[in-house]
């Protein structure tokens, strides 16, 4: 029973998935759509599971003080910061942030930092509107303006909001008050992390490949046998044929359609020799996948259960 039910689930799911390719009509197409939705949900859960596993592995590494355990602390902190800010602010480039809510009639600040409020109020005196529209919200008339302004901070730094990054000013008037809300776009931490850390670190890792490939080629690429010589020869031709310098070495025209040059031999190698090898691998892998899938569906292959 413990294994029977999972085996039956696998059998029916596999058969439905297989059948819908041959009978793409009701009810198989509907069931297939449902299963596809389930797969997306499972894939999302797999991501959560991955994060939890990463945390578990690194917590164990820290608690047992394994080699380089200090890096695990950095990893966990970075992971939590990225996830935390991503969940709070999202990962978009900018978010709307309210920097001031102010009653201009009574000159009273309703919400803002006491350090920045005077500077914003001062800046509002030079507000240059670009656009203005009146909307009705909750029975009250709101004027929404977008415009340019400068805010001079206490230490004399001028923050400029131009037409490409305008300030949004919402004005709500009634008999007793004029409430002004000032909204600006501020960058998100998630985007900052991406733009200033992930992008540069990833590019650096990728760039280092050039150095390692050059060094590895020098230390490991030896023509020790006939096969190794063939590999070496092909590598030379493809490397020269793939870059414009390959054309500099000239060409031999045997026939109108038969031109021998590094680029032409490279194309031949890629289109014929490489394709033949790749297709053999692909076909082999595909046949292997079919065989293993059938074994899983009919319950002969049970290693996915885990255990021995």
């Amino acid at each position: 029973m413990k294994r029977g039910i999972p085996l039956l689930i696998v059998f029916f799911t596999g058969m439905i998935w297989l059948t819908q390719y041959f009978i793409p009509h009701y009810p198989f197409n509907k069931v297939m759509n449902l299963l596809s939705d389930w797969m997306k949900i499972i894939a999302a859960f797999a991501m959560v599971l991955g994060i939890l596993n990463l945390l578990r592995v690194n917590f164990i590494k820290i608690s047992r003080k394994h080699y380089n355990w200090q890096y695990s602390i950095i990893l966990i902190i970075a992971l939590l910061i990225t996830i935390g800010f991503g969940c709070i602010q999202g990962i978009t480039e900018n978010v709307d942030t309210t920097i001031l809510v102010y009653n201009s009639k009574s000159n009273e600040v309703i919400s803002s930092s006491i350090f920045v409020a005077p500077a914003i109020i001062e800046g509002l005196k030079n507000f240059k509107p670009i656009s203005s529209e009146d909307v009705e919200k909750d029975g009250k008339k709101e004027t929404i303006q977008k415009g340019m302004m400068d805010i001079t901070t206490k230490n004399g730094k001028v923050v400029k909001y131009t037409d490409s990054n305008p300030v949004k000013r919402i004005i709500v008037k009634d008999d007793n008050s004029v409430i002004e809300t000032v909204i600006v776009k501020t960058g998100t931490v998630g985007h900052w992390i991406y733009k200033n850390l992930i992008e540069h670190l990833s590019s650096t890792m990728f760039s280092l490949l050039a150095f390692f490939i050059a060094s590895a080629a020098f230390r490991a690429f030896r023509a020790k046998s006939f096969e190794a010589m063939l590999l070496l020869g092909s590598a030379f031709i493809v490397m020269l044929g793939k870059v414009p310098i390959g054309d500099v070495f000239g060409k031999i025209e045997i026939h109108e359609k038969i031109i021998i040059s590094f680029p032409s031999i490279q194309v031949w190698l890629m289109n014929y020799v490489n394709t033949a090898g790749q297709r053999a691998i692909l076909l082999g892998a595909a046949i292997g996948i079919i065989a293993i899938s059938i074994k899983i569906i009919i319950g002969l292959e049970r290693t996915y259960f885990g255990g021995e």
Partner: peptide
């Protein structure tokens, strides 16, 4: 262009030694 040429030269040197 240059790096590909350079790698080829390095491989040739390595094989001369070998």
């Amino acid at each position: 262009n240059i790096v590909h040429l350079m790698i080829i030269i390095f491989i040739i040197i390595a094989n001369i030694i070998y």
